Simulated assay, not measured.
Amino acid sequence: MHLPAQVLSDAVAADATRPALTYYDDNPDGTGERIEISRRVLRTWVAKAANALQEGLDVQPGSVVLVDLPAPHWRLAYWALAVWSVGATLTVDTHEGADVLVTTDPDSELAEDCDEVVAVALPALSRHFGAELRSGVMDEAAELSSYADDFVAWDEVDPQDTALVTFGSRVTYADLLEGLAPLPTGGRSLVTTRDRGTFVRVVLQMLATDGSAVLVDGPLPADDDPRLTAEGVTFRAVPDAGGPG
Score class of each variant (00 low, 15 high):
residue 2 H to E: 02
residue 3 L to Q: 12
residue 5 A to Y: 02
residue 6 Q to P: 00
residue 8 L to Y: 06
residue 13 A to M: 08
residue 17 T to S: 15
residue 22 T to Q: 15
residue 22 T to C: 12
residue 24 Y to V: 11
residue 24 Y to M: 13
residue 28 P to S: 07
residue 28 P to H: 05
residue 29 D to P: 02
residue 30 G to W: 10
residue 32 G to A: 04
residue 33 E to W: 01
residue 34 R to Q: 15
residue 35 I to F: 09
residue 36 E to S: 11
residue 36 E to I: 02
residue 37 I to T: 13
residue 38 S to K: 10
residue 41 V to L: 12
residue 43 R to L: 13
residue 43 R to A: 15
residue 44 T to K: 15
residue 44 T to L: 12
residue 44 T to W: 08
residue 45 W to E: 13
residue 49 A to W: 05
residue 49 A to F: 05
residue 49 A to D: 06
residue 50 A to S: 14
residue 51 N to T: 06
residue 51 N to D: 12
residue 52 A to R: 11
residue 53 L to P: 04
residue 54 Q to M: 06
residue 54 Q to Y: 05
residue 57 L to S: 09
residue 60 Q to H: 15
residue 65 V to K: 04
residue 69 L to K: 02
residue 69 L to M: 03
residue 69 L to R: 05
residue 70 P to R: 12
residue 71 A to P: 05
residue 72 P to Y: 06
residue 72 P to T: 11
residue 73 H to K: 06
residue 73 H to Y: 07
residue 73 H to L: 02
residue 74 W to H: 07
residue 77 A to Q: 11
residue 78 Y to G: 08
residue 79 W to Q: 09
residue 83 V to G: 02
residue 85 S to N: 08
residue 86 V to S: 13
residue 89 T to P: 08
residue 89 T to Y: 11
residue 90 L to S: 11
residue 93 D to S: 05
residue 96 E to D: 12
residue 100 V to M: 05
residue 102 V to I: 13
residue 106 P to G: 06
residue 107 D to V: 05
residue 110 L to E: 12
residue 110 L to V: 07
residue 111 A to T: 13
residue 112 E to V: 04
residue 112 E to P: 01
residue 113 D to P: 00
residue 113 D to F: 11
residue 114 C to N: 09
residue 117 V to P: 09
residue 118 V to N: 09
residue 120 V to Q: 01
residue 122 L to G: 06
residue 125 L to W: 03
residue 125 L to R: 10
residue 127 R to F: 08
residue 128 H to T: 01
residue 129 F to M: 05
residue 130 G to L: 00
residue 131 A to E: 15
residue 134 R to K: 13
residue 134 R to D: 15
residue 136 G to F: 07
residue 137 V to C: 10
residue 138 M to I: 08
residue 140 E to F: 12
residue 148 A to F: 10
residue 148 A to T: 07
residue 149 D to S: 11
residue 152 V to K: 10
residue 152 V to A: 11
residue 155 D to K: 00
residue 156 E to S: 13
residue 158 D to Y: 00
residue 159 P to K: 10
residue 160 Q to N: 11
residue 166 T to Q: 08
residue 166 T to V: 09
residue 168 G to Q: 11
residue 169 S to W: 04
residue 171 V to N: 04
residue 174 A to I: 07
residue 175 D to R: 14
residue 178 E to V: 10
residue 178 E to Y: 12
residue 182 P to S: 14
residue 182 P to H: 04
residue 185 T to W: 06
residue 191 V to Y: 09
residue 193 T to K: 08
residue 195 D to V: 03
residue 201 R to T: 09
residue 203 V to S: 04
residue 205 Q to D: 13
residue 205 Q to T: 01
residue 206 M to A: 15
residue 209 T to K: 10
residue 211 G to Y: 14
residue 219 P to V: 10
residue 219 P to Q: 09
residue 226 P to Q: 10
residue 227 R to H: 08
residue 229 T to V: 14
residue 230 A to H: 05
residue 231 E to I: 04
residue 231 E to V: 04
residue 234 T to R: 04
residue 234 T to Q: 03
residue 235 F to W: 12
residue 239 P to N: 00
residue 241 A to K: 08
residue 241 A to Q: 14
residue 242 G to L: 08
residue 243 G to H: 06
residue 245 G to I: 04
